[in-house]
Every structure is written in structure tokens, then in C-alpha cells.
Simulated assay, not measured.
Amino acid sequence: MTSGVTERDRAKADRQAAILHEAARLFAERGFSGVSLEELGAAVGVSGPALYRHFANKQALLGAILVGVSERLLAGGRGVVAGGGSPADQLRALIGFHVDFALSDADVIRVQDRDLASLSDDDRHSVRRLQREYVEVWIGILSALHPDRGREDLRVRAHACFGLINSTPHSVRALREEPRDGQVRGVLETMALAALTV
């Protein structure tokens, strides 16, 4: 019995993943408005118009990047909770998960910081909704650790933690030669944990 996924399906998925990766890199370097479809196509070895076989337009490509990463973050955060453990263990796992994201998807963080307003209204609403749900995952764990604190207090703390971790693409460019699992990861995890458990 086959899985129903053909070689053509796999090739198309691989091409889409390559397009998304290169688009995030180029958007991070030059901004959404500073990159043409022709440049995007050249980065993955196709003509600009060939991208329309995968995405309706450049704005749809931006939406796929930012909605997609928001979906991955929410699924990952929920996966941490589903994994069980004490609230303290879950918080450490959640911080580790978000640090992994920040170190591996630095380009996407830079794109969101600069180009969120360039999304279509529908995609922007989707991103905001998914982000709110991700924050609620953090608040659920933090409320178990700090039952005396209100949800708004915990929401501020969660957002401050994201700011600390997500500053990585802007603050550690000089450390790009360092092993990703070394100095930067340790600093981020230690600081985030200290900030959220103080």
C-alpha cells in the first residue's frame, strides 16, 4: 500500500520549501519591497513567472512564510505542553524550543519585524490569531508557576521574553561563526529562564 505521495508531489514540496527559504533570506536582507519576483526565481533556479505555479504572487509568498512560521510555533508550543512534566520542566522545554526557533529562523524573525504590514489583511489576521494562541500556551505554563500573578502580568512577561530571545538576529551577527549550540544558546536560555522565574 502506498502513502499516496508521488515523486512529483515530493519534488513540488521540495521546490516550495526552497522558494520559502530563499524568499525569507532575501526579504531579510533587502525587505519585501526590495526583492523582485525575478530575483526570487533566480535564487532557486527558475524564472520569475515560474513562481506563479507555487504562489499566486509575492504577497502570497510572504504570507506563506509568516503564517507558516506562526503555525509551527503554535504546534511546537502545544507539543511541549502535551509532553507533560512539571510546570518548571515545561517552561525550560518551551524556552529551549523558542531559542531553537530564533537560532534556526533568524531570517524569518527579521522579515516579520519589518514586513508584517505588507501581508494581506487575511494573512495578517491569521498571524495575529496564531501568535495570540502561542502566547496563551506560555501563559498557561507561567500561571501554574506564578498562581498569584494575573494573566495580563504574565502576558507582559511572555512578550518580554520573546523580545529577549527574538533579538538574536539583530544582536549576535558577530557570533555567526560560533557553534549554534554553544555560547549564544546558553546565554539566551539562562536569561529567559531567569526573567520568567524571578
Rank of each mutant, 00 (worst) to 15 (best):
V99T: 01
S70Y: 01
V80M: 01
A102M: 04
I109Q: 08
R72T: 10
Q112C: 08
D122M: 10
S143F: 12
V80I: 08
G84L: 03
S118H: 14
F101C: 02
G77V: 06
Q112E: 13
G84N: 04
G83Y: 06
L61K: 02
V111K: 05
R124L: 12
F97A: 10
E136S: 14
E133G: 05
S118V: 03
I109W: 01
H98P: 01
A102E: 04
V81M: 01
D105C: 14
L119I: 04
V137M: 02
R78W: 06
V137T: 09
G79K: 05
L61H: 02
L91E: 01
A64I: 04
Q112P: 02
A144P: 00
V111Q: 04
D148V: 11
A106L: 09
E133I: 06
D123A: 09
R124A: 13
S143Y: 13
L62M: 03
G140P: 09
G63Q: 00
I141A: 01
A64Y: 03
L73Q: 07
L94V: 03
V67A: 09
F101R: 04
I139Q: 10
R72P: 04
A82H: 02
H146T: 13
D107K: 02
R114F: 05
S143C: 13
G140T: 09
D122P: 00
A93P: 02
D121S: 14
R128C: 05
Q59W: 03
A106D: 12
G83L: 04
F97D: 08
L119A: 00
P87F: 11
A144C: 14
L130A: 07
V99C: 00
S143Q: 15
V127S: 01
K58R: 11
S104L: 14
R92N: 09
V81Y: 00
R128E: 14
E136K: 13
G85F: 05
S70D: 02
H98Y: 13
L73P: 00
L91S: 03
I141F: 02
G96C: 07
A144K: 15
S143T: 15
